[in-house]
Amino acid sequence: MLFAVGATVATANGGDGDRDGGTSSRAPALYSPDAGFARDMSVHHQQAVEMSFIVRDRTRDEAVRSLAYDIANTQANQRGMMLGWLDLWGLPKVLADEPPMSWMGTGGEGGGHAGHGGTAGHDMGAAKPGALMPGMATKEELTRLGAVEGRDAEVLYLQLMTDHHKGGVAMARGCATLCETPAERKLAEGMVAAQQSELTLMADMLKKRGAAPRG
């Protein structure tokens, strides 16, 4: 696994990049979509991992526990890749003056991509009060998830993760359109496909529990 992550990080900084116009041979700019996506999605993924660990201890349902394990494992690995790219590019993992999602043209500097970012950001819903980015849970929702058990925990987790995936898919589509690093675009495209599949699965799991996605 570590070898695979290392190879992916190396590709993001060069390697096969010259076959795609040479864009990956140069480190992305500080406020570029490539850097912004890596920073924001790392934060987004971290919460998915946190929620998955919470529900693991709140239910004995094997289907939900298996889904939570898969999501936590996948998103932790992807987060490691994105943080690795930022290190390789010599860029900070956090920027105090960068509003969340600004790389998609929602209010911050676009690193020369602002003309495209407005289009990519159209399908992003606004973050709910108390949430950092669209799809993310609030502190109150995380506290509630840690307090319920059994079916209630399963339903709340599936609803929260459905919202989370919808926000993540929109972000990944933005990177697939705006990012210039081939390996990062490929990762984003993979996120879209995988999370859309999990959205279908979670809708079915909610239905079996007499519930439905929120909103």
Rank of each mutant, 00 (worst) to 15 (best):
L2W: 12
V5Q: 13
G6Q: 12
A7L: 14
G14Q: 09
R26V: 12
P28K: 05
L30P: 06
L30T: 13
P33H: 06
D34I: 08
D34P: 10
A35R: 12
A35I: 11
R39M: 10
S42I: 04
S42L: 06
H44T: 04
H45N: 10
H45T: 03
Q46T: 11
Q47R: 07
V49W: 03
V55R: 07
R56S: 12
D57N: 15
A63M: 12
V64T: 15
R65M: 09
S66N: 09
A72G: 11
A72I: 04
N73M: 09
N77Y: 06
W89K: 04
V94D: 14
L95D: 03
P100E: 01
M104Y: 14
E109A: 13
G115T: 06
G115Q: 10
G115I: 04
H116F: 11
H122M: 11
H122S: 07
M124Q: 10
K128L: 15
G130V: 15
M136F: 08
T138E: 05
T143R: 15
A153N: 07
E154A: 09
L160Y: 13
T162N: 15
A170H: 02
R173T: 07
T177Q: 14
E180Y: 01
K186M: 10
L187R: 02
M191N: 13
M191R: 03
V192R: 11
S197V: 06
A203Y: 00
L206K: 04
R209P: 05
R209E: 02
G210N: 09
